[in-house]
């Protein structure tokens, strides 16, 4: 392991004029981005702004997509999807171990990872026997067991209820502090991004329109008034203004 200072100067992910298009429609328009090793980054944007496309490109999942540009990512990358994507025919521990060597030592690491996400004792359960939040925690354990240098997460808590989501935020942050992977968290939840990330990117029309560093100490409270400033800037970048009511209470930039 390199010393922390050195880690932070070495980019884990580096994109140079990354362009992606579907059927002639450009979704990512020449994106440049460096994510330093060990940084917790959140990616915000409207639905359809290309967040998932960017994440899939970094994950190496965008075969058959037309695109150009340069892309560097570490060797060990883990992805957490919106759905837990556990194989229903494998028990929880076997799901966590999917893709590992399958020896004793790996199984032990799997048990440790499950314990870390609070699922100790559920190793032999079937995925269908877990709650939604537990399934997502198992998915988190599966991504941790590979000791990723880069953790990509595409709205990992999108399907969870608000209370579970808050718990998962704390868990994810704790896990990050312990393992220090670089994180790219795609979300449409501004508060989630503010509470969790050290840096927030806003993607709009295929470009990064805001790159915000959040300099507040952790753990952050959802009620911290200083975080409200960030929220306002982010909402402005997203084209949402809270102060001018319209029929639906919000004015979006789409109505320009």
């Amino acid at each position: 392991m390199a010393p922390l200072a050195q880690q932070l100067t070495r980019p884990a992910v580096s994109l140079r004029s990354l362009t992606r298009s579907f059927d002639g429609r450009t979704v990512l328009d020449s994106v440049d981005l460096d994510i330093p090793a060990g940084q917790f980054t959140a990616l915000l944007g409207h639905s359809g702004s290309g967040k998932s496309t960017l994440l899939r490109a970094v994950a190496g999942l965008d075969h058959q997509v037309v695109g150009s540009g340069e892309l560097t990512a570490p060797e060990r990358v883990s992805v957490v999807f919106q759905d837990s994507r556990l194989l229903p025919w494998r028990r929880v521990l076997d799901n966590v171990l999917l893709g590992t060597e399958g020896n004793k030592e790996a199984a032990e690491r799997g048990r440790v990872a499950l314990a870390e996400v609070g699922l100790a004792g559920r190793e032999r359960a079937w995925p269908s026997e877990l709650s939604g939040g537990e399934q997502q925690r198992a998915a988190l354990a599966r991504s941790l067991v590979r000791e990723p240098e880069l953790l990509l997460a595409d709205e990992p808590f999108g399907a969870l209820d608000a209370l579970t989501r808050i718990r998962m935020h704390a868990l994810l942050r704790r896990l990050w502090e312990r393992h220090r992977p670089s994180v790219l968290l795609v979300t449409h939840d501004v508060d989630e991004a503010i509470v969790l990330a050290d840096r927030i990117l806003v993607l709009d029309e295929g470009r990064i329109v805001l790159d915000l560093t959040i300099g507040r100490a952790h753990p952050r409270s959802y009620r911290d008034p200083l975080l409200g400033e960030y929220r306002e800037r982010l909402l402005a970048a997203l084209g949402v203004r809270e102060d001018v009511p319209s029929e639906d209470g919000l004015v979006t930039k789409d109505s320009k």
Binding site: R10, S14, Q64, G67, L71, T72, A73, P74
Partner: peptide, 19 residues
Amino acid sequence: MTTSTAAPAVSNAKTKQVP
């Protein structure tokens, strides 16, 4: 580019249309 060798799946420097 500063990073060391990366997995072939993700390190498509000069990524082009993949058949």
